[in-house]
Amino acid sequence: MSLDKATVAKVANLARIRVEENDLEPLANELNAILGWVEQLSEVDTENVAPMTSVAEMSLRWRDDEVTDGGYQQQVVANAPAEEDGFFAVPKVIE
């Protein structure tokens, strides 16, 4: 499995990271080096091995259905780069 420039561009788009055309090639080389090294995992026999889900033997805790949070609009938008009347504002989306 080796990444070409087009794949890197596709992955970068999925990750919403702008990558300049000139940088695709070197990035592809770097990523291929890492992925090539990771290939050695295929040596490990993982037949009938369950993927790791949690370190501790524990099961998911449930909380009770109570309203215990929220109600602080100003704190929610306090760090917003753009705010309008308690809303977050983003460039207009045309659907």
Binding site: R63, E66, V67, T68, D69, G70, G71, Y72, Q73, Q75, V76, V77, D85, G86, F87, F88
Partner: peptide, 18 residues
């Protein structure tokens, strides 16, 4: 999260940091 689900509240008032 523990924030409320009621319909029609003012914007971003039923929002937790989560």
């Amino acid at each position: 999260s523990g924030s409320a689900t009621e319909y029609g509240a003012e914007q971003n008032t039923q929002v937790s940091f989560i």
